[in-house]
Simulated assay, not measured.
Amino acid sequence: MKICLWVSMVLCVLMASQTSVSGQNSGGYQIGDAVANFRLKNTDGNMVSLADLNNVKGVIVIFTSNHCPFAKAYEDRIIALNGKFASQGFPVIAINPSDPGTHQDDTFEKMKERASAKNYGYPYLVDDSQQTAKAFGAARTPQAYVLQKSGAKFTVRYIGMIDDNPQDPAGVTKLYAEEAVANLIGGKPVVTTITKPVGCAIKWKN
């Protein structure tokens, strides 16, 4: 099973390298930038806005998708991140920017099915216009952003991989997103602020 998943990941990377990504925002938020508010539809039908998150210390924003084998490999780890840190003031918000016209597994109905089947304890938002992903500068799924809240402002403190081993949770040696959140909760600076995301390239709409 693990071998099949890894082969799927390799094929995903090869296909992504051959796919045009014209229109991709090469900029996006940098470390220390304040994030503009976004308002996106959750799989429960309700709208979720960053500005509505009042009683939090920050948030872990993860761009992900249904179809990508990398995203599937990280799914349980994303659930665990939320389970560990939501109660400490850093909940997960998952956002799917994938074009369902390219990947049928990423339709809103399929998102609802997946969130229900896995019992996500966090919002799974659809980024239909892909404008939120472009504002962040997201390039792949999954890609994590750790935001720290101060007053009404959310500031970027970490960008990149969730951890250092996409294919094997047991082989992880660096918990980048988790360490970033733990440092912020402890009042310490984030040591590793940027890593290169590994995953499926986001296919941008024309």
Rank of each mutant, 00 (worst) to 15 (best):
D105M: 11
H103G: 00
L81R: 01
A133S: 14
T173D: 05
T193G: 03
V56Y: 10
G27V: 03
Q148M: 13
I185F: 02
H67N: 11
Q30V: 04
L5E: 14
V61N: 13
D168L: 09
A34T: 15
T64A: 07
R39H: 15
K84C: 02
D52F: 02
V172N: 10
I194Q: 15
S129I: 02
S150F: 00
R39W: 07
F70M: 06
R157L: 02
E75P: 05
K41F: 01
Q18W: 01
A144I: 12
P123Q: 07
G101A: 02
R77P: 13
L81N: 03
P166Y: 05
E113K: 12
K196Q: 15
S17T: 11
P97N: 03
A80T: 12
K174L: 01
N37G: 14
I3G: 00
V198A: 13
V59I: 13
D52T: 10
V126Q: 15
E109A: 14
R114A: 00
K110L: 00
C200N: 06
M15Q: 10
N46S: 15
L14N: 01
K57Y: 07
Q167G: 06
W204P: 09
A144R: 04
S22D: 13
L5P: 00
P189S: 07
F108V: 08
N37R: 10
S87I: 04
D127W: 03
P197I: 06
A135D: 13
V48K: 11
N25I: 00
K72F: 00
V146Y: 05
K41L: 02
G160W: 06
F38A: 10
G45N: 10
I159R: 12
N96P: 12
S87D: 12
L147S: 08
Q18L: 09
I185P: 02
A152P: 05
Q143Y: 04
T107L: 08
A138W: 02
